[in-house]
Structure formats: structure tokens, C-alpha cells
Design a protein around this nucleic acid. Structure first.
Length: 463
DNA sequence: GGAACTCGCCAC
DNA sequence: AAACGTGGCGAGTTCC
């Protein structure tokens, strides 16, 4: 990729950005090495036991018996061959190259108890090999110094490596505890994380200026994902503080709204939603499955509303998709068309921050790249400004990293109030004052670890 | 013995 | 007509 800043401002952003990020790299992040050593030994034993347990199953014996060589239980190729050629399992899910898949999803669907043992062994092995061991490999005097690159991503985002600081487990509680439990602030300090709230949606709105979307973003009382949940799941008195409704909102947000923004379409959305939140199979649906609602289940509710199979859910979502792009956010749709036309005519497009993208791109890339890049540039701008103030004031607090839309700092407790107020001001005020194309409020959310507490213990932090 | 490929999985 | 964007990285495998 060729970094192509078309304006002085774009050049300065990356010039100053890489210097600020270099200081974060130099600062480094403290790792509890004793803990990592102990965890690795503990996981070694645990994985060994799981491997033994798996090798005693009749599933494995059949697998080994059918194979000419010694089976490697971690070989997806060998597993696929056994499942799909020997056992004759039907291919429900394919890999990118059209072969039978052996990922989490595919194996769970097969409902073979022995495979759960294998999956658990794989998960713990990943945590150990990919994260914990990389800490030991990369640490110097108990600190890792992840690289934060600005020259590797086609969208003008950043990336991180050796080790990658941007993909540590978060959603899976067990993996999160194991990995982030190794990451600490300096002695007497705490870890602070400042996240832009919904930055990609906000930045997208600065491009397309869709009036309905602007209303959603500017009015804190409105809730796009709740409205979509109401529509998709046909719930009249929606209350997002009720646990089941909260889950429906999550389903609408992560199963429909975001995938649609990235260019997905109703069939995938329907399949994924039915599978993830409804635990519903292809064909006609059974009662008693999926998200538990007040006195019923998601599957019962959908069936009672006349949606009795995946096919019928797909058709229903097809209409919702049409409504979404033609009635709800028509100007967003028109922007995507305009932006695609500009690219086709000139062969490139220029981001609001002054970087230009050229080369062969499809429509989804053309409409996603400017949003992804520009959103990151908001974070980078805030990072540079924060770093400048930290140095000017000679603070003991230091920036230690960046995760696309969040800033991670190692904070001296005495400076906590000052630094949180400063970051808030930078994001709420300084940034929109500097970049006039920002036409929506820029908001920040913060989380903090306890003093001397690991990153696994971070909690919401009220500013 | 390393490059290149595929697959799978972690993050945003 | 077809159908989710961006990375890093471990592992197994094949090719040279």
C-alpha cells in the first residue's frame, strides 16, 4: 500500500501520530511474569488432560482407526476429512474455498460430545500459545513494547504487532481473565481506557449526512438499535432495561444494523440471528428455543407472529432491509451510490481527513474504507493532543497504546482527575472545533482498573 | 528449512 | 449478480 496524504494536514497527522505512538511503544506495558509462568504451566496440564480425555473417546478411536497416519488432533484438514469423508457428515458450513468447515460453529452444530472436549482443548491452547507465550517472548524487564504501525492498513487505520495489543480476548470471560489478568499498570498506577462512543456511526453520518441518522445521533433519548429490535422482533412495549429486551437489542445491533452498515444482506443476517440468538435450525422451528422472554421463548414469539421457519424469517428480513435503506436511512443509501460513482469516475476518493484511497476496490470497500479510516483519525488526533499535554505538563501518566477507537493510559492516581477531564475536553470540544466537518457530538466513555489492579479488573469509570 | 497457502480465531 | 469491512498470528500443509 502507498500512504497517500493529499493534504499537508493529513501528512502532519501521521507524522505527529507516529512520533506519539513511538513514545507509547517505548513506555511499554507491565506484565506479571510470575503469573504468566504459573498460568502457562497450569494450562499445559489442563490441555494435556483434555487431550487424554479426547483420545479415550470412541470418536477419536474411530478417527485414528480410519487414518493411515498418526492423527494430529489439531489438524483441521485431517478432522474435515474424517468428518465429511469417513463419517459422511453433511456440510452445513463451508470454508472460504468451499470445503467443509471445522470451526467452532460447524463442530457445535454436529452435536458430538467428544468434539466439545476438543474445542475446549483448542481454546485453552490458543490462549496459552497466542497470548501468554507472546508476553514472555516479547517482554524486556517485565514490560512488553507492542508496535503501533500507521503504514500497513489500506484504510489508513493503524495496526499493532509483536505482540498485537489490539486483539486480546474481551467477550469470552474465561479467556479475558487469563490474558488480561497478566497486564498491569506500573506500581502504584492504574490502567485507564478512553473509548470513542459509536465513532464509526458518527463518522459515517459526517459523510452521508442522512437526516434520520443525524437525529438518532444528536438526540440522546433516541435509540436506533432499540427501534430496530422493536421492528425486527415485533415487540410493542420495548423496555431496554428488561434483560430479554436488552438481548433483543443486542441481536438487532450486532446481527442486523452493523452487518448492514458493512454491506451484508438480509439472508446472512437472518441466518446468523436465527443461529446465534434463536438457536434455530433451517426449516421449520420448534418452540422453546432462543432468548428467554418474559413468559416465553424467542422461537415461540416468532412462531406466534407467523414466522415459523428460517425461510419465512429471511423473507421478513428482506422487507426490513428494504425499509431500512429506502425509508429509514435513504440519504445514507444515496451517499453510498454517489461515493461509488465518484470512485468509478476518478479512480480514487479522498477522506475527510485528506488521505486518498486508490487501486481496485469493490463497492463495499469503497463505502467502508473512508468511514473506518476517518474514525481512526479522530482517535489518533486525540492521542496526539493528549500526548502533547502529558509532555508539556511533565506528567507521570503515560499513553501505552491504542485500539482503533480507544486510548489506553498508565495513570498516576493523583493525575487521574486531570487526565480524564482533559481527554474529555479534547474529544468533546477541541476535536470538533478543529475539524469543522464533524457535525455530530463526539463522546467518550471511560473504564479504569483499580490501582495496582490488572486489566481484567477494569470497570466503568464516571467522569 | 523457509515461503506461501489455508484455516481458524482474537480484536475493532 | 452477489452478498460483512480491517488487521495479526498460530497451526498444519505443501511446494521449492
Amino acid at each position: 500500500m502507498i500512504i497517500n496524504p493529499r493534504t499537508e494536514e493529513a501528512y502532519q497527522l501521521f507524522h505527529n501520530g507516529i512520533l506519539a505512538l513511538a513514545r507509547a511503544e517505548q513506555q511499554g506495558i507491565r506484565i506479571d511474569l510470575d503469573y504468566v509462568d504459573k498460568k502457562i504451566r497450569f494450562l499445559n496440564r489442563k490441555v494435556d488432560r483434555l487431550e487424554e480425555e479426547f483420545k479415550e473417546t470412541s470418536f477419536f478411536r474411530h478417527w485414528q482407526h480410519s487414518s493411515k497416519r498418526t492423527v494430529n488432533i489439531y489438524s483441521n484438514e485431517q478432522l474435515a476429512s474424517f468428518l465429511y469423508n469417513v463419517k459422511g457428515m453433511r456440510i452445513e458450513k463451508e470454508t472460504a474455498t468451499g470445503k467443509g468447515a471445522t470451526d467452532d460453529d460447524a463442530l457445535i452444530q454436529m452435536n458430538i460430545p467428544a468434539l466439545n472436549v476438543l474445542l475446549r482443548a483448542k481454546k485453552l491452547k490458543t490462549v496459552k500459545e497466542k497470548y501468554l507465550k507472546s508476553f514472555l517472548r516479547e517482554q524486556v524487564n517485565g514490560y512488553i513494547h507492542p508496535f503501533f504501525n500507521l503504514h500497513l492498513v489500506v484504510t489508513y487505520r493503524g495496526s499493532s504487532d509483536h505482540p498485537n495489543f489490539q486483539n486480546m480476548p474481551k467477550r469470552d470471560e474465561e479467556s479475558m481473565q487469563i490474558v488480561r489478568g497478566a497486564v498491569y499498570p506500573r506500581l502504584g498506577h492504574l490502567i485507564l481506557e478512553a473509548d470513542f462512543k459509536g465513532i464509526e456511526v458518527s463518522v459515517a453520518a459526517c459523510y452521508h449526512k442522512d437526516s434520520n441518522m443525524l437525529k438518532y445521533i444528536r438526540n440522546p433519548a433516541s435509540d436506533m438499535h432499540a427501534d430496530m429490535a422493536k421492528q425486527i422482533f415485533m415487540v410493542d412495549d420495548f423496555d431496554k432495561f428488561q434483560p430479554s429486551h436488552y438481548l433483543l437489542r443486542q441481536a438487532a445491533k450486532n446481527g442486523f444494523v452493523f452487518p448492514q452498515f458493512y454491506g451484508d444482506y438480509y439472508k446472512n443476517c437472518a441466518n446468523n440471528m436465527a443461529c446465534t440468538w434463536g438457536k434455530l435450525p433451517k426449516g421449520s422451528w420448534k418452540k422453546g428455543q432462543g432468548i428467554e422472554m418474559e413468559s416465553t421463548f424467542l422461537s415461540n414469539h416468532l412462531i406466534s407472529q407467523g414466522i415459523k421457519s428460517l425461510e419465512s424469517f429471511e423473507n421478513y428480513l428482506k422487507k426490513i432491509e428494504k425499509d431500512f435503506w429506502f425509508k429509514r436511512f435513504p440519504e445514507y443509501r444515496e451517499w453510498k451510490e454517489r461515493w461509488w460513482n465518484i470512485y468509478q469516475k476518478y479512480g480514487y476518493f479522498t477522506l475527510l481527513t485528506g488521505f486518498s484511497c486508490s487501486g481496485i476496490m469493490d463497492k463495499r470497500q469503497v463505502t467502508n474504507y473512508p468511514i473506518q479510516g476517518t474514525a481512526f483519525h479522530c482517535l489518533l488526533w486525540a492521542l496526539i493532543k493528549t500526548d502533547r499535554i502529558i509532555r508539556k505538563m511533565k506528567l507521570d501518566t503515560k499513553i501505552i497504546g491504542q485500539i482503533h477507537d480507544s486510548l489506553i493510559l498508565d495513570v498516576h492516581p493523583d493525575e487521574l482527575t486531570f487526565i480524564t477531564k482533559t481527554i474529555k475536553r479534547i474529544i468533546n470540544e477541541d476535536l470538533p472545533n478543529t475539524w469543522k466537518w464533524i457535525i455530530v457530538p463526539m463522546e467518550v466513555e471511560m473504564e479504569a482498573s483499580p490501582i495496582n489492579g490488572s486489566w481484567a479488573l477494569k470497570e466503568n469509570f464516571k467522569i
